[in-house]
Design a protein around this nucleic acid. Sequence first.
DNA 1: CCTACCGATCGGTAGG
DNA 2: CCTACCGATCGGTAGG
Lengths: 215, 215
Amino acid sequence: MPPETRRRGRPSGRTGTDLLDTARAVFLEHGYAGTTMDAIAARAQISKASLYREHPSKDALFAAIVRAWADAGRDAMRPHLQRLESAEDTREGLIALAEIMRAGILGREVLRMRRLVTSEAERLPEVAAAYLEDSWERNIRALAETLRALADRGRLRAPDPHLAAEQLTWLVIGAPLNRRLLAGTDDPDGHAAPVATAVDLFLAGYGPENGPLHA
Amino acid sequence: MPPETRRRGRPSGRTGTDLLDTARAVFLEHGYAGTTMDAIAARAQISKASLYREHPSKDALFAAIVRAWADAGRDAMRPHLQRLESAEDTREGLIALAEIMRAGILGREVLRMRRLVTSEAERLPEVAAAYLEDSWERNIRALAETLRALADRGRLRAPDPHLAAEQLTWLVIGAPLNRRLLAGTDDPDGHAAPVATAVDLFLAGYGPENGPLHA
DNA sequence: CCTACCGATCGGTAGG
DNA sequence: CCTACCGATCGGTAGG
């Protein structure tokens, strides 16, 4: 029997990052309280004792999952921001970006992760704070830098790029995110406003030759 | 012994609406999973058996609490919308309304209730849907009607008042709501943008003589 | 209306 | 001898 098959001295189940992915799936399916360490261990094909040796408690495991998730999502928007920055037509570039932001934030996994972190935010404030920073504030700042760059080239007028970035973001995702968080998962979001309506209001205030925001 | 003291034939603990208020407080303190029916019964000074006679399950009790809460919050914005509609200065009227919306939605109890409903939304979709309708969609529609009335009197230009109402709402509360939901409760929201920035972007698009939204 | 109690299952840890 | 892992079960508590 070849040593690869025997795997002597190597764990046969998932550990490390694989374990976190598996555990995340279980948490997303059943929620925090509904998830048992037994279920996670079973899914990962390790004993509970092994699970506890890697993560000393359920809370610690959850924190590790959120950290890994937020880490993986860091700078996820970078390439799309690059495309916006070099877009011929600023309005169309903004619409394309807005479409990607909306699809990303309203994705099932992202939505469920958000619900999970939010529901435990009071009990585990440092976990929620890290999530907020890595998967939100950081991306807002990146968008703000792109808006500043566009302003520098006369494509926009944005005296406060960070504020503008927040406003654009919430114009795009506020209503559908709220609906998805509170309505069941089944809503195909048929009656969501096109992202262009958000971009047009944004440009009414921040377009290069528009608006009393710069009076 | 006077009959008021004996209270013969009357339950000595809280029932009905009082019971729902008491139970809501316990849920808000400990979250759904962290709340036990024993704790609620004790706080309400009734036996667990009595509690189960009024509400056949923990889920049913929770549903009744959310329904009562959403019901109490219905039309909470009406008087403030009246004031906006008769405001001398539209911008200042919008700012005053925005201030009230923000304060209301970011209140501790409202925020905690929102977290609670959201976290159980997948398990109890009809509860979350009722909450969304009564304490959200309904208020958006009321705001939309006010905006339409202002447009009719030439104070605004709003071809789609419902869309405009949603956009104003999320410009005002999106960023601080997100931060409060994910950050601990301690944040005094020092670095929140003034509501006037939201109103000004809104007016850049919907002001009576502004913007390419009406080109 | 209450005390007492149930079947089951939880997060976490023992010895080997 | 070590690291990696297991079956079995602990004390407490959940909703009903």
